[in-house]
Every structure is written in structure tokens, then in C-alpha cells.
Design a protein around this nucleic acid. Structure first.
Length: 497
RNA sequence: GAGCCAGUAGCUCAGCUGGUAGAGCAGCGGCCUUUUAAGCCGUUGGUCCUGGGUUCGAAUCCCAGCUGGCUCACCA
């Protein structure tokens, strides 16, 4: 290592000294009896008993013949009292040479100190792993009942690049990721309870489809062929519906070769699910119940706090046709879906449109500008123009529209669903329309997938499908304004060395 | 892609209209058996993001670049 930082050097010297004293600074295991939070919460029954705890030293108050320190484990922190007479001179001296960041294991008696803090009074102590790089440790103080943190590790670049450090020193960060995990667990439980089968489909695809986005391209050497990282898994899951699996879902990492901002990361997580013999009305009911379930599991309440708003996820949510929504929020009637007229309206509304946009895309632009940000409480935007939804089934009664919905929460779309198009003749036509848009310059228009068409030519039952952006859902449930704060390792440019 | 802001010790930051680079914490040495931002005494530590320029002299002013943040644009 070319890092000649003095702090690192000092710790390496300490390492060397430990070896010379016959102490292995990297032993193999430690038998822990309790986690920190348990010792505190079960103090009543544990008082006076011996426990074994382990964790990372996070704060230390050393004195001549007795010391205090706090160790941190996955659940929290606990104070240790280490007296020379209890652990012996050798161990005590070894302890005094330890640093913040080192892992230790301690056996001792559970007692309260003079100030009433539940602590473990050590009878033995061993080093479990020596840290040779100093942590950017913050200091905390209770002031007027509030926790004040000094010198907190706040540099966003460093926090994202060295998330492992961020997690150690910023407890809120850990909490957000635990919540993210609970969200996924709650969804999985809910789906499994409703007879869904969790499946896996290809990430490397010869034809990318199922969404409108530019892909990452790669190459298979042995077959000498181009492959794409999936932008969605929709078309594969529908193939499984064709194959007779009536309810399937997949938590999928998808990849889109587009801009990065606080709502977009090049790789992100979606859950997609498909249900045979159901339509989008059924799916809307299902989404309401699913979100309510997640909120109750994660927050214990259907009311959540997001960006200064209280959002109530209790069903039912309003269902608002997109054209109606535009009329309500702009006063303009766009129901004719005539491209020329739409361009004129877009102009009047100062919405930028480009020549390659068709009618559906223009509607989407107006919606995104004037309506979406205002929909804070959960709302289903439904019945989109057919052109912007090439995989959705024609509306049963409204010409030019499809049976589609997007749940909007907190001013952001967090999912997309439809009554799936299962008419192979219509599907082929839609793909052909997409190819024409592509020729017009729309790089995100979808590509005709002959094998997918073959699959639905064999016959696909009526099906409802749904995709939910897990990252955006996690942002919502953890009240984070940037996708980076719900991704452990958000995409960054490479570190210059 | 555009605008604004930032980059100084391991961390958090100060450093004015240019004149020998600082503080707190962390570290190191010493004292200390109920501390909790422990305390007291002493002390080490710098590619001031990089490269040019102006100047007798640049952390400071100018230009370019790098990295990041925020906002906007783009984005199913």
C-alpha cells in the first residue's frame, strides 16, 4: 500500500507489536450470547448475569486503571466498563493500545453504572480484528434531551464511494437500508401469500424490450454476437404466462443507458408481476392492498411522511383518466388525440416537443409538466393513448386508448400496469407502429420481437401485468429525496488515482 | 447538456482587500478506577484538487481542467 498516512503507519506498528506479544489480531470467531440492544432491553432479567457481546469500538474513555468504551454491533451500541483488576494487567494494557474501529469481544456482567447506563463490566476481553485505517468518527452529545452530533461524516462523495464507512458512522443510513430490505420482504410475503411464483429470467437478451429506453450493449465472445442488458423483463414473464404459470413475479435489476440524476441510476430494481385471467381493474385493487400492506409492515401505519407531506396510502385511491387529468389541470381538451392539435396545445402550454414525438408522447409531456408533480396523494392515472403503450390491451370502450394505469405518489410515477395485450395480430401491428416511430428518430421506440410474437400466437390468457420501481418506492417509504440514498453503491465516475 | 456552489490535516471547518498554513476532534507521549464530545499537561501531522498565468511573492487573483453537490433539461 502506498498510503503513507501517518495514522495508518502508527496502526501498522501496533499490529506488529501485537504479533510480537503473541496476540493474533485476526482470530477466527467469537461466541456472542447477546446483541447490544437485547442487553439493554432485557436488563431486568440480565442484571448481574454474565453475557458475551462483540462489536466495533466507536467511542472510548481511557483512564489509568479503568476505562469505558462503547461498541457497536448490528443493532446498536452498548457501553463496556473495563477495569484493570477485573481483566488483568496484560489485557488492560492491550486494551489501552486499541483504537476506535477495532473489533472486540467481551465477556462480563450486566450492571448499571453510577449514571444509570446499562453496561457490561468486563471480566475478559479479546481483540477480534484490528483496524488500521481511521474511521471518520463523529462525536455525539445529549444536549437538552436532543442528540447533537459533532464533526459528522457528511462529504457526499466520500459517503457514496465508501459506503461501508458511511454505514458504520451514520446510523440513519443503515436504517434506510434496513427499511428497503423490509419493503422487499413485505412484498415478497404478500405475493407468495397470493399464490405467485418467484422466477428468474435472462439479464442478457438478444433483443431488448418491454420498455422504452436505450440499452447497454455487450458482446458474447464464443457466439460472436451482440447482447443487451435487459431494460425490462416484461416480455419474458409473459412468455411464462403463455407457458402456463398463472402468477409470476421477478425482482429484477434492469439497466438503462440514460442520464443520471436523483431519480435515475443506470441500474435499478423493478418488481414485475403478471396474473392470468385478471385485468387492470383487478390490478389496481391489488396495488392498493399491496402498498397498504407494505406501509403497515414497515411503518406500522398507512400514513407516511414524504418531502414535507403526509401521504395516506389507505385504499381506495382515486382513478383519474389521463386525458381528464390534463383537462382538469390545464383547462385544455386533448381528447381528440390529433397530433397537429396536440402540438398547438403544447405550444400554448410552453411544453417543449420535438418533431419525432407522436400524439401519445406529446400527451405524456404535457402530463409530466402540468399534472404529475401535483399528484401528491396516491392516484391511479389510467387509460393512456394507445400509441404510448404498445404492449397494453385496447380499452374495452374508449377508442384510441388502452387499459393502463400508473400509480402516482408524491408527484412521481412509481409503477406501470396494464391489461396485457394478448391479441397477436394487434401486437404485431403495434410493434410495426413502434418501428415506424423508430425510423422517425425515436431511439426509445420498441423493437419488434418475433419470438415474443410467436409465443402469444400460441395463445396467452387474459392477463394483468404490473411493474413497480423498487428504488422509488424505497425513497418514498424512507423519505429520501435522492435515489442514491436508497442504493448502497450508486453509480459514480471512477476515482482518479 | 446548462447554471450555481464546493474541493485546505484522518474528520468537521476557519484562513479578510495577495506577505512564513490554523482550530477543534482524532493520533502520539505522560497523569488519571464511574466516564460518556471524559479531563489535565505536552506533541506529531499539509501535493491548500490538478495544470497554466499574473506578481518580488498565490491557499487567496485570472484561465483551463478534474471530482462532487444542488437546480434545471433529458428520462415510461
Amino acid at each position: 500500500m502506498e498510503d503513507v498516512n501517518q495514522l495508518v503507519k502508527v496502526r501498522k506498528e501496533k499490529l506488529q507489536q501485537l504479533y510480537e506479544e503473541g496476540i493474533n489480531p485476526y482470530p477466527y470467531s467469537f461466541e456472542r450470547s447477546h446483541q447490544s440492544a437485547e442487553v439493554v432491553s432485557r436488563f431486568g432479567e440480565l442484571e448481574g448475569r454474565e453475557v458475551a457481546v462483540s462489536g466495533r469500538i466507536m467511542a472510548v474513555r481511557k483512564m489509568g486503571k479503568a476505562s469505558f468504551c462503547h461498541i457497536q454491533d448490528m443493532q446498536g451500541r452498548i457501553q463496556l466498563y473495563i477495569a484493570r483488576d477485573a481483566v488483568g494487567v496484560e489485557v488492560y494494557n492491550m486494551f489501552k493500545g486499541l483504537d476506535i474501529g477495532d473489533f472486540i469481544g467481551v465477556r462480563g456482567t450486566v450492571k448499571k453504572t453510577k449514571t444509570g447506563e446499562v453496561s457490561v463490566f468486563a471480566v475478559s476481553l479479546e481483540l477480534l480484528s484490528k483496524s488500521i485505517r481511521p474511521l471518520p468518527i463523529a462525536k455525539e452529545k445529549i444536549e437538552d434531551g436532543k442528540k447533537v452530533v459533532y464533526d459528522q461524516f457528511v462529504d457526499k462523495e466520500l459517503r457514496y464511494r465508501q459506503r461501508y464507512v458511511d454505514l458504520v458512522v451514520n446510523p440513519d443510513v443503515k436504517e434506510a437500508f434496513v427499511k428497503r430490505s423490509k419493503i422487499i420482504t413485505a412484498m415478497r410475503d404478500f405475493l407468495n401469500k397470493h399464490d405467485f411464483l418467484e422466477v428468474e429470467t435472462p439479464v442478457l437478451q438478444p433483443i431488448y424490450g418491454g420498455a422504452a429506453a436505450r440499452p447497454f450493449k455487450t458482446h458474447h465472445n464464443a457466439l460472436d454476437m451482440t447482447l443487451y442488458l435487459r431494460i425490462a423483463n416484461e416480455l419474458y414473464l409473459k412468455r411464462l404466462i403463455v407457458g402456463g404459470f398463472d402468477r409470476v413475479y421477478e425482482f429484477a435489476k434492469d439497466f438503462r443507458n440514460e442520464g443520471i440524476d436523483r431519480f435515475h441510476n443506470p441500474e435499478f430494481t423493478q418488481v414485475e408481476l403478471y396474473v392470468a385471467y385478471k385485468d387492470y381493474n383487478w390490478m389496481m385493487d391489488f396495488v392498493e392492498r399491496l402498498f397498504n400492506h407494505i406501509a403497515l409492515e414497515v411503518h406500522g401505519s398507512a400514513k407516511i411522511e414524504y418531502a414535507g407531506h403526509e401521504i395516506d396510502l389507505t385504499p381506495p385511491w382515486p382513478r383519474l383518466p389521463i386525458l381528464e387529468a390534463i383537462r382538469q389541470y390545464t383547462g385544455k381538451d386533448v381528447s381528440s388525440l390529433d397530433e397537429g392539435e396536440l402540438r398547438k396545445i403544447a405550444g400554448e402550454l410552453n411544453v417543449e416537443v420535438t418533431p419525432d414525438m407522436g400524439a401519445g408522447k406529446i400527451v405524456d409531456e404535457i402530463f409530466g409538466e402540468y399534472v404529475e408533480p401535483k399528484l401528491i396523494q396516491p392516484t391511479f392515472i389510467i387509460d393512456h393513448p394507445v400509441e404510448m403503450s404498445p404492449l397494453a390491451k385496447k380499452h374495452r370502450s374508449k377508442p384510441g386508448l388502452v387499459e393502463r394505469f400508473e400509480p402516482i405518489i408524491g408527484g412521481k410515477e412509481i409503477g406501470n400496469a396494464f391489461s396485457e395485450l394478448n391479441d397477436p395480430i394487434d401486437q404485431r401491428r403495434r410493434f410495426e407502429d413502434q418501428m415506424r416511430l423508430r425510423d422517425r428518430g425515436d431511439e426509445e421506440a420498441q423493437i419488434l420481437d418475433e419470438d415474443f410474437l410467436r409465443a402469444i400466437e400460441y395463445g396467452m390468457p387474459p392477463t394483468a401485468g404490473l411493474g413497480i420501481g423498487i428504488d422509488r418506492l424505497a425513497m418514498l417509504m424512507t423519505n429520501q429525496s435522492s435515489i442514491r440514498d436508497v442504493l448502497f453503491f450508486p453509480h459514480m465516475r471512477p476515482e482518479s488515482k
